[in-house]
Structure formats: structure tokens, C-alpha cells
Write a protein that binds this DNA or RNA. Sequence first.
DNA 1: TGAAATGTTGGGGCG
DNA 2: ACGCCCCAACATTTC
Length: 482
Amino acid sequence: MTRLIWWLRRDLRLNDNAALHYALTHAEHVIPVFILDATLLNAERLRGARLAWLFDGLRALDSDLARYGARLIVREGAPADMLPALCAEIGAEGVVFNRDYSPYAVKRDSAVQKALRERGLLAHSCADLLIHEPHEVPSKSGKPYDVYSPFRRAWEALPKPEPYVITDALRAKLRLPDDLAHLPSAPIPTGAQPAPQPIGAPGEAEALRRLDAFIAAPIYRYHERRDLHGEDGTSALSPYLRFGMISARTCYHAALKARAAAPDESARKGVDVWISELVWREFNYQVLARYPHSARRNLRPAHDAIQWEDNPAYLAAWREGRTGYPVVDAAIRQLLQTGWIHNRARMIVASFLCKDLLCDWRHGERFFMQHLLDGDVANNVGGWQWTAGTGTDAAPYFRIFNPIAQSEKFDPQGNYIRRWLPELANLPAKFIHAPFTMSAAEQRHFGVLIGRDYPPPIVDHEMQREKALRMYAAARQKRDSA
DNA sequence: TGAAATGTTGGGGCG
DNA sequence: ACGCCCCAACATTTC
């Protein structure tokens, strides 16, 4: 009677799961184990809303498991110590898990493999987090891609893995054997700082429901609506993908199904643009896997020459959503309320922090990481380095968003601002993007006094834009003369 | 997955 | 009728 541990990390689902499928097809009993890793739980940047959401997600998974007479075994400790000990405790032959590619995960997992194999235990890892693993997408020259477009072409050309079909009959093996009926399990903690209104309930059922709803219709207009941050034109699946409550394979195949059913060329375009976002995710992992240092530092050392101002007062105002630029402040409110920000708004606030407030992207990266339910090193760092112009295929330094123009262009009626900054809800569209342009009489008329009801702009965009250009130019000069 | 500055064109008002 | 100017609309260049 062979037993295997299915070590869950960020694959909290019972469908289309490579490690689970492998374990269920290679053992008589599969014990699902989640380890509360002190290194992660104590990391300052992780003690935010995401942790609370993860814990609730573990509870959701536990109740999903209950349908098969199974339960999630939770332990606290260092995985490299805990897993060999647990194998001995329950008589398991080894551990199966899905690979992860962040620098910490790579280090942790190789320590676990070493510890298990030294004791003659099985350590089997599977490809699951991505549709194609980082090393699978080489260019003709055999080198990995630094630029997205050729990466995508090569990615498209590869044969795609099918989702893993896991039947209820297989899942019956998750039921704990009788001698382990009382196997101790630590209580799932409660997060200290949950998002007040998370963007969605965690769990696989909710993830699948959202995917179904999205591919039923919104996906066909994704290319037209994805940039309108005042509308719900996106799938908002990122937190679910983050924790593997749904798999990228499942998303991709659902999109292909939608594409086959698309009524016209425009609808197919919507599907393709959405798939393109899945590919960005894979591109970001591929970059991080190859440049692990980019999790903490500028990807290109040449950019270390940039002299960020890092004014603490500006940084605080940005973090607290009181910059006086409504779209920026609204996005911060959305983040703190829901643990999620629309992608367009992410780009706007990121550009504002780096290129208007002249703060190092790492301050923003860290803040996002604390509060985003989908906070993920590869994608978060990828996005920030893109905005700061320090990444591989990054925005050029002179691409500076005008927060007012962006707000007017992508949210003409100001719906996003009205939703997240109710104190401005009564302003007409004409003033809502830049309330400080109101005359004193207009401020009185609409009941919004700048300085009392809403802050004045913390900086002048025009001036800061010029400053940013000088800052980047100086860095370039310093680099070239060095 | 920018925006501002600069250049060009053409219509219309006007003397 | 003509030249001149203004400026919107669009294109191109620049950061």
C-alpha cells in the first residue's frame, strides 16, 4: 500500500493538477499537505491581505477535500525538515509537488529534494504553474528571449499540453487511510490584515465559475474593454492563478474553446488578446528564472545610475492615496479595499510613482506585494521594471503617463473615480479627473473644496515630467561616460 | 501598453 | 480675386 504526500504550495485545486494527478496515479493513498513556512509567514511583505486570502483559500480547499472524505493536513515548520519527518510519521514513500520558479522557491525546493533523497525518499516535481516552463521556449539560436513579441511567437508554435483529467474515482485515494484517521493537523490561521472587501471569495469553485462567466461573453470584447478601468472588462482571475485555484492550462483551453465558438473576427481578436496576457505571465516567469537578481535589483546594472529622489513625503502620499490626482488615489483605495487593481490603473499609479514622484520602483513593488491578492514576484517585478524602464522589454524612459489624460481617455465618465473616491462622486465629468482646475466658485457649487474635502495635487505633472526626463538623461550620461 | 513639441495642410475670415 | 493670418486637424518628430 504505497503512500505519497502531495505537497501543496500554490496549486490549491483538485482539477487539472499535474502533481496531484501524478500522485493519484502512482500511489494507493495520497495525503495532501500544506506547510506553514515560517520564512514566508514572517516576511514583512507577505503579512498583508494576500496571506489572509490564502488562509481562507486553504479552508475552501479543505472543504472541497471533505467531499472525498479527505482533509488537508497542515503543519508548521521548515519544509526541508518537515517533509522527511512527515514521510516517516505516516509511512509515505515520498513527496510530489509542482515546480515554482521564484528565487526563494527554487532554493527551498532544492533543499527539500536533497533532504528527501538523502533519506531514500522520492522527491518528484512536475511542470504545472505555466503552460510552458521557462526553459521550454528557446529561440532559434537556442537563447532565451529578452523581448516579448518573439517570445510569444515561439510560445505559440509549441505543442500545448492537455489539461490533466482527474476523476472522482482517482480522488477517492485522497481519503486518509484508517490508521491516519487522527493524523494531527495544525489549525489554519486567520490572517491579521484581510482586505475589507476581497475582489472574490478564494477557492477553486469560484475560480471556475469566473472563468466560465468570462469565456461565455466578456472575452469576446476583451480587446476593446480591457483598458477601460472603470468597467469590468477583464477576467479578474489573477488572484486565483496566483494560488493555482485554477490552472493556466485550463484557462488556455477554455479560451481556445471560446475562440472556436467566436461569432466573428473581432470576437476572435478578444480571445487572442486575452491569451496574450497569459503569455505575458509566462514571459515574466521566464525572465525571472533567468535573472533571479531582478527580483530585488534593476535587471540591467546600467540602470543603477538613476538617482531616484525617494522623497519620503511623496511616497507616503502615494501609499495613502492622497496625491490629489484622482485616478491615482482611486487605484490605491481599490487596492486597500479589494486587494486588486485594474491593470490600466496599475500602470498609471506605477508611472506616477516612478516618473512623477521620482521614487525607485522597488518602493512600489514592495507596497503592491504587501496588498495585492495576486502578488507574485515574477509578474509584480516584471510590471514594475517595465514601467520604470529598467527591465528587458521595458517601456522607454520617455514614456511618461499623464494621469489626467489617461483618466479622461480610459474612464471618460469618471466611473472609476466615483466608485473609489466617493468624496468626488458629485463632480461632473469635466472636473472629476482634475478637481484642482475648478474655480473657488465651482468648488463651492459642487461641494468639494480642494484642501478640505480633497487634497491639492502633490506635484505639478508638467514640472515632474521634465524632471524625470532630466533624471533619466543624467543616468544615461553617467553610464555612457563611465 | 505616451505625450508633448513641431511640422504640414487646408478651410475660412478678413482687408 | 488675392494675400494674409488663424487655427483646427492631422502627421511627424522628439523626449
